[in-house]
Write a protein that binds this DNA or RNA. Structure first.
Length: 485
RNA sequence: GCUCCCAUCGACUAGGGGUUAGGUCACCACUCUUUCACAGUGAAAACACGGGUUCGAAUCCCGUUGGGAGCGCCA
């Protein structure tokens, strides 16, 4: 065990999208592997024929790539311990289950689904401690079993659990955990369609792929005794487990679709930066112990350790994610920001327009401290991309005075004498206008802001005017005078 | 119902026998800015409860309560 290379895996089932909780699991596996210099493996758990979803694996890989979680072995990449799709490892499970059958650690069961349902209902009615299979088929003689199989009777293979046993295992986040064999059901290992169940395939693959640490969600804790029993039945070393605290809805139930977005894809579509999402979910259940909140992934790798993972569930609070997104966005370079804005613009209603880098950069500088998302550059700063369609009601009420039209006309008039006014000119003219009209600067600034941007907030007025330029300023002044006549 | 897990501000968390129980998000106020934001300053805000151990418990132990997960031929 000493000096053995650390190998961890992320083992999703391809159901169409990555749940945000699963991304966190993948992230912790990734961080642990990278921190320790170990290997991070991706394995596709596609043993449920009924739940197969077309394109799910591609989506999964794309999402991992977007998140920046590169893996060492897995689909599309290969590795020494493949195949990395469970559906391509069926013969492996078959040979292994035969060993269990031979050792009498597992047995064939011919009970029908109806009998099982009836049994469960009966047990529930009797308010028995737990519902579990009654081991009836264990009584079958070898001859009966062979005869049944020869007849083509549908069957499964079950794990033969000794109720008198005690199952103990080590969990790196929870310490020592103990279960009584009494409460462990004779788990189905091979389904009647000949596919293995998760429990069987998972244990065999983890062993064969030399997985040293099983890092997964807490929802797996109750089935871990089954897995331990399987390792023992095979005579294999049991890996170290680390059951991660659950990600929670605001009402503290397990994070679910009903109470918001759970697909990583949803957050991506909303414009969240992968860096921000990664930073955020890393802190949901883990802390370095200091007061650092802002992390890039390489910093996470450097500080991550399993022993600082929390035990209790963490509510997914979108507010903090929003904040982190803004923080990450603000630290991007101009070049990056221009590119991101361009890409985003392509899918916006301004997709037909052409903008120079110089222009976009001005917008970015003006808006950088005011946005949390890339798309907000043109949503909150729409006036850099089109004329205001309407004027903010409250601001109008507060700032639009009887003399405003005259003031704006004066401003417009003065500015038209300039060939190419710059920021300082716009300011100078403002002071002149205020003086000549015998009003305070505010009486010019606010109506001007409304006319050119339509809203009361935003960058400094001279910066706005400088960006949109003389002609648009004049056009917009004329427009508001016309509209508010 | 049973099994297991968990319990510090609204949220994420630090602390883990002696602390004015610290930080971050959100919220509020002030400063800066004739706007908004950023930034800065400040405020408000928590050890679930009961026993025990101890000179001393948020911290260790037990119990209670509360919450969660799991109890499939799904993963």
């Amino acid at each position: 065990m000493i000096n053995k290379e650390i190998r961890v895996r992320y083992a999703p089932s391809p159901t169409g999208y990555i749940h945000i909780g699963n991304l966190r699991t993948a992230l912790y596996n990734y961080l642990f592997a990278r921190h320790t210099g170990g290997k991070f493996i991706v394995r596709i758990e596609d043993t449920d024929q009924a739940r197969k979803v077309e394109g799910a694996v591609e989506n999964l890989i794309a999402t991992l790539k977007w998140a920046g979680l590169d893996y060492d072995e897995g689909p599309e990449k290969g590795g020494d311990y493949g195949p990395y799709y469970q559906s391509e490892r069926l013969d492996i499970y078959k040979t292994h289950v035969d060993i269990l059958l031979q050792k009498k650690k597992a047995y064939y069961c011919f009970c029908s689904a109806e009998r099982l349902t009836a049994l469960r209902e009966e047990q529930q009615k009797q308010k028995l401690n737990q519902t579990k299979y009654d081991k009836r088929c264990l009584q079958l003689s070898d001859e009966e079993v062979s005869a049944n199989i020869a007849k083509g009777m549908p069957h499964v293979v079950r794990l033969n659990v000794d109720p008198s046993s005690t199952i103990k295992f080590k969990d790196d986040v929870r310490g020592d955990v103990e279960f009584s064999g009494e409460v462990v059901d004779d788990q189905v290992l091979i389904k009647s369609d000949n596919y293995p169940t998760y429990h069987l395939a998972n244990v065999i693959d983890d062993h064969l792929m030399k997985i040293t640490h099983v890092i997964r969600g807490e929802e797996w804790l109750p089935s871990t005794p089954k897995h331990v029993l399987l390792y023992e039945a095979f005579g294999w070393d049991v890996p170290v487990f680390a059951h991660l605290p659950l990600l929670l809805n605001p009402d503290r139930s397990k994070l679910s679709k009903r109470q918001g977005d759970v697909a990583v894809e949803d957050y991506r579509k909303k414009g969240f930066l992968s860096e921000a999402l990664i930073n955020f979910i890393a802190l949901l259940g883990w802390t370095a112990g200091d007061d650092k909140e802002f992390y890039y992934i390489d910093e996470l790798i450097k500080s991550f350790s399993l022993d600082r993972v929390n035990k209790s569930g963490a509510v997914f609070d979108i507010e903090k994610l929003n904040w982190l997104n803004a923080e990450h966005l603000r630290r991007k370079s101009d070049t990056e920001l221009i590119q991101m804005l361009r890409d985003d613009l392509k899918t916006s209603k301004y997709s037909g327009n052409e903008y120079s880098d110089e222009y976009l950069l001005k917008v970015i500088h003006a808006m950088k401290e005011r946005v949390s998302f890339v798309q907000e550059f043109y949503e909150k700063g729409s006036y850099f991309f089109e004329e205001p369609a309407s004027y903010e009601e409250a601001a109008l009420k507060k700032r639009w005075k009887e003399e405003s039209p005259a003031i704006l006309s004066k401003y417009s008039e003065k500015i038209s004498t300039y060939e190419n006014p710059v920021k300082e000119d716009f300011e100078k003219i403002l002071h002149e206008t205020a003086a000549e009209m015998n009003v305070g600067n505010g009486n010019v600034i606010h109506p001007l802001r409304l006319a050119t941007s339509g809203v009361s907030g935003g960058p400094g007025i001279f910066e706005i005017l400088d960006i949109i330029g003389r002609d648009k300023t004049i056009t917009r002044i004329n427009a508001i005078l016309e509209k508010l006549k």
